[in-house]
Design a binder for these strands. Structure first.
Lengths: 173, 173
DNA sequence: TTATTTTGAGTAATTAATCACTTACTTTTT
DNA sequence: AAAAAGTAAGTGATTAATTACTCAAAATAA
């Protein structure tokens, strides 16, 4: 990975996340990266190839994040782990997650590969805890995480700690 | 409102919701509406004016929807009312809500005018029910509604009725 | 007729993508 | 070691297509 390749990916991620994939031209990406426009196509074939490279880059981050959740043996620890995600989106991951969530709304580009294993993990945890409908509980918790992440990425509410406390109380965590 | 004006709005709403505002050209809107491209600019000034017309059209629908929630006097009925929203998005409103939710991710275009009054209504209901932290509960319920609507608009999970039941149980509704 | 709506050809700017070409390193050959 | 050959990174001018938008003329309605 060249220094200029990284510059391109970095600039494209930021611009795509802030303005939206379709609204950002390859010209703007090149200017933001301090690179000739042609170089983008040399390295990433076309504009969509650039997007795919960003997505794959982020998938690796997400994979390691997911891995740390499965490890725990105590089901309450598992739930604590997956519910903590929206509250722990740090600076360097911010643009990536914002882009991923924005792309969900852009037709075909939606990817379930992340939520599917997480749903299974959550369902197993709820079952171990004796919940009446573990599958529905798992579905609900994923939906809530989605909402929490959206709020964090878009509005950054100031009372998120209170929200976190309120939510954790409902699951006795 | 001319017949062709409505055709334009209808086609634009559908395309913007499905493909995204930036990814849809005025040419495509015109073709989908069976209308000349120039007519769009006669009626709506420019592309953004077309978007604004769609948004305002939907704001009126949202307004009446919101109005029916405030009416109720029983706080549990209020909560039932606002929590029911994501489960009752019908065909004709589908494209509008999908567009609104997608636009939230498109930078400047985010509009809080809908969620603010709803947060107040929810907080009052939770306070009346004696909840410990009504403001945090209200924030959380809005976040959950956001997640539920997203799931309904994007994935249409088959077990939404079970999810609904699980959620309502948590609030004893 | 007079006024309004609608068209379709036109514009300048921007788009994604390609092109021939230069530069900087390696590798291979002598 | 020096020379030659090969390779990958990078540029910037250029392409054809598409973009949002305009306008004079035609169709339609009043």
């Amino acid at each position: 990975m060249t220094e200029k390749q990284e510059k391109i990916l970095e600039a494209a991620l930021k611009l795509f996340a802030e303005k939206g994939y379709a609204a950002v031209s390859t010209n703007k990406v090149a200017r933001a990266a301090g690179v000739s426009e042609g170089l983008i196509f040399r390295h990433f074939t076309n504009k969509e190839g650039l997007l795919e490279a960003i997505k794959q880059q982020g998938m690796e981050k997400a994979q390691s994040l997911l891995g740390s959740m499965v490890m725990r043996e105590d089901p309450k620890d598992v739930l604590r782990g997956i519910l903590a995600f929206p509250f722990n989106i740090d600076k360097e991951e911010y643009h990536y997650w914002r882009l991923m969530y924005a792309l969900k709304w852009q037709a075909e580009k939606y990817d379930h590969s992340m939520s599917h294993p997480m749903r299974k993990i959550a369902a197993d945890a709820f079952k171990a805890l004796g919940y009446a409908d573990p599958d529905a509980e798992a579905e609900l918790i994923l939906i809530i995480i989605d909402g929490l992440a959206t709020a964090e990425l878009l509005r950054r509410p100031q009372n998120m700690e209170a929200v976190r406390h309120t939510l954790f109380s409902k699951y006795e965590l």
